[in-house]
Design a protein around this nucleic acid. Structure first.
Length: 678
DNA sequence: CCCGCTGTGATTTTT
DNA sequence: TCACAGCGGG
């Protein structure tokens, strides 16, 4: 039974794995084998005879949840592994709400709106609410609304201050979502917490279900997430094990509360606190540098990373005259280290920066000298209109109140329902306080229309009706029905018509076909999940397909990784270039106003600890900002670094005198570099 | 429906 | 400087 191997773990890890009862705080420094400990802990619980269904592990991202599932599956009997609940916070909340949301006044078939959907709603509400002289940017409003939802007073059921525009918009927004029988991402947490708090029977039910709770990346939890964990915690003392690293808390700006981990005892008294400090990733030169930086943070749980990997190379500190030279240095080093056999592959390198804009520059420079590279993150993902369109069709079939989805598709492809007709339908639905879909079948409304418009509305309603019954019929083949719907409305020809290029049309079509294939596979694998289950999964995990594709690309053409500090968390690279280490960039100038310098320091710390064997820290004397060159000063953080493992690099010497032994190769690449820049 | 003009603002990003 | 959103005109 206990076939997994406790002896593969170090002492601290083993202690963390076997301390199963009561509150436990595992402080897992960067690269200390956190995922191993969590998965081993689950395996250990199972080996101790704990029922799989009694174990709950919560993560932030689907990626983390997926990896955890996979690893647990390799450690224990796969059937037992399947019984363990490993989910993201949001997926867990969906589960609670799909069962019990009716107590809060929503219907069970509620829709989940993503940021784009919500932004549209907010836009509309602002125009309807704001006076002529009032201005409120939808994006700003959205983030303020999100903050409000994490405000304890709102969570406790208080209403917002409606004397302010945001407050008024907030209230209307919430009412609107409820009318649409929809929730946003924050609501998933907010409503789950409200459910457990206000309905003791529901709370008792869910509490009785899980006996062992584990939370990954606890430093990233916000208030509602902590509340949720507290509400689900069962027994006294409760078996709650949280894993995290306060030094890597870098999401304060979107509501994460480091205090949750710093003041863990306040929420779960007398916990066992265990530290994982042995690092399996980096050299000691890198770790000492990281330690020397992070100890400058006043509020933290002291940790000192160490490793058995030896001292390693010094950390390079590189002043550059400007960003062009900084990039030239990085390029030069990549060539040199590959020629010298220090790195086998481009994928061993990462360039890490504070802002996405810096990535643009590096991407251009690397491309110019034919170094393959891949940008991680950025703004590639939100452009999948065709997928959202298909999902909107399905959402309408599942939730007739979902006006937002209905509006998305009501004239897609164009069926003669222009702005005017839609506006009238909306007005009527407001008047009658019904959903748009209900209006489409309302004789009173239809009577006010021209014959042509009336027919268009009626045909559309009939279309939805017929596909609703086909989808919801017992034994329905979802993918086949969806495919038939797309064919009937001429979806693919329309896709073709509205695409600029042939390539774009094909890509879009593939996206939709992939989605249908996914749906088919989902139904085969989880016949109980229903169409709803599939839609939930897609809306909570919209990157899945994209990620798969990206992985394929990565495998095919591996290159230098260009990535922001935030996105780099959790990753590691043999050779890391941390660039743009200037005051104002890191720490970012806004952090001074916002008083979040500590978080910037943690960001730097995260960056340093990504490196396995070689780390270079560079900064510029001059940087072109918004078209004009401006002088910069080195980041104040650099002064905090221990000098023991720092080597100062003279860029002029390096770039003007390539090392003799490697001159053939690097001379060649320099030539290419020069040619590439023309 | 699409194109071009103008104004604005420019950290980090997952669910 | 540059990208992009919002708007108005053809």
């Amino acid at each position: 039974m206990a076939s997994f191997r406790l002896f593969d773990l170090n002492d601290a890890q083993r202690a963390a794995v076997t301390q199963t009862d009561g509150p436990v705080l595992i402080l897992a420094g960067a690269g200390t084998g956190k995922t191993r400990v969590i998965t081993a802990r689950i395996a250990y619980l199972l080996a101790q005879g704990v029922e799989a269904r009694r174990i709950l592990a919560v993560t932030f991202t689907n990626k983390a949840a997926g990896e955890m599932k996979e690893r647990v599956g390799t450690m224990v009997d796969p059937d037992a592994a399947k019984g363990v609940t490993i989910a993201t916070f949001h997926a867990l909340c969906v589960r609670l709400l799909r069962t019990d949301i009716e107590r809060l006044g929503w219907k069970k078939n509620f829709s989940i709106y993503d940021q784009g959907d919500c932004l549209g709603l907010i836009r509309g509400i602002i125009t309807r609410t704001a006076a002529r002289d009032e201005k409120l940017e939808p994006n700003a409003a959205q983030s303020l609304i999100s903050k409000l939802k994490n405000d304890p007073r709102i969570a406790a059921g208080k209403s917002a201050d409606e004397s302010t525009l945001v407050g008024a918009v907030f209230t209307r927004y919430q009412a609107e979502l409820k009318r649409l029988n929809a929730v946003d991402f924050d609501d998933l947490l907010l409503l789950a917490v409200r459910l457990l708090r206000e309905h003791p029977d529901a709370r008792d039910k869910w509490r009785a279900r899980f006996h062992y709770l584990m939370v990954d990346e606890f430093q990233d939890t916000n208030r509602l997430q902590l509340d949720l964990v507290s509400l689900l915690a069962h027994g006294s003392p409760p078996n709650v094990c949280v894993v995290g690293d306060d030094d890597q808390s870098i999401y304060g700006w979107r509501g994460a509360e480091v205090a949750n981990i710093l003041e863990f005892e306040r929420h779960f008294p007398q916990p066992k606190i265990l530290k994982l400090e042995q690092n399996y990733r980096s050299t000691n030169a890198i770790l000492h540098t990281a330690n020397s930086l992070i100890k400058n943070n006043p509020r933290r749980r002291p940790k000192t990373l160490w490793s058995e990997h030896g001292t390693g190379d010094k950390v390079q500190l590189v002043p550059a005259p400007n960003e062009g030279e900084e990039a030239a240095y990085v390029i030069n080093e990549i060539h040199r280290r590959r020629a010298a056999g220090e790195a086998a592959d481009y994928r061993d390198f990462a360039v890490i920066y504070r802002t996405n804009a810096q990535g643009d520059f590096f991407e251009r420079e690397l491309r110019a000298v034919n170094i393959p590279c891949q940008r991680i993150g950025g703004t590639s993902i939100l452009d999948r209109r065709e997928v959202k369109d298909l999902l909107a069709f399905v959402a309408c079939l599942l939730n007739a109140d979902d006006d937002v989805s209905l509006l998305r598709i009501i004239n897609l492809p164009p069926r003669g329902l222009g702005d005017n007709a839609i506006e009238r339908a909306l007005a009527h639905s407001m008047e009658k306080k019904t959903s748009l879909f209900a209006v489409l079948g309302d004789p009173e409304f239809l009577a006010t229309l021209s014959a042509r418009t009336r027919a268009a509305f009626q045909q559309f309603a009939m279309l939805l009706d017929s596909y609703e019954s086909r989808m919801l019929a017992p034994g329905a083949d979802y993918a086949a029905v969806a495919g038939a719907l797309l064919d009937e409305i001429g979806f693919f020809p329309e896709l073709r018509r509205t695409s600029k290029t042939e390539g774009e049309a094909t890509a879009r079509e593939i996206n939709v076909r992939d989605l249908l294939r996914d749906l088919e596979r989902y139904q085969r694998r989880s016949p109980d999940g229903g169409l709803r289950g599939f839609i939930d999964r897609v809306s909570l995990d919209r990157d899945r397909q994209e990620e798969k594709k990206r992985e394929e690309q990565e495998a095919a053409a591996s290159g230098v990784t260009l990535i922001t500090l935030h996105a780099a968390k959790g990753l590691e690279f043999p050779h890391v270039f941390l660039v743009g280490l200037e005051e104002g960039l890191l720490p970012h100038e806004r952090s001074r106003v916002e008083g979040t310098i500590d978080e910037e320091r943690r960001l730097f710390y995260v960056g340093i600890t990504r490196a396995r064997r070689a780390l270079s820290l560079s900064y510029c004397a001059t940087r072109t900002k918004w078209g004009t060159a401006a002088g910069c000063t080195p980041s104040s953080f650099l002064r905090e670094l221990s000098r023991d493992h720092l080597a100062h690099v003279n860029l002029g010497q390096v770039l003007n005198a390539p090392a003799a032994e490697t001159s053939a190769r690097s001379h060649f690449s320099r030539l290419r570099e020069m040619l590439g820049q023309r």
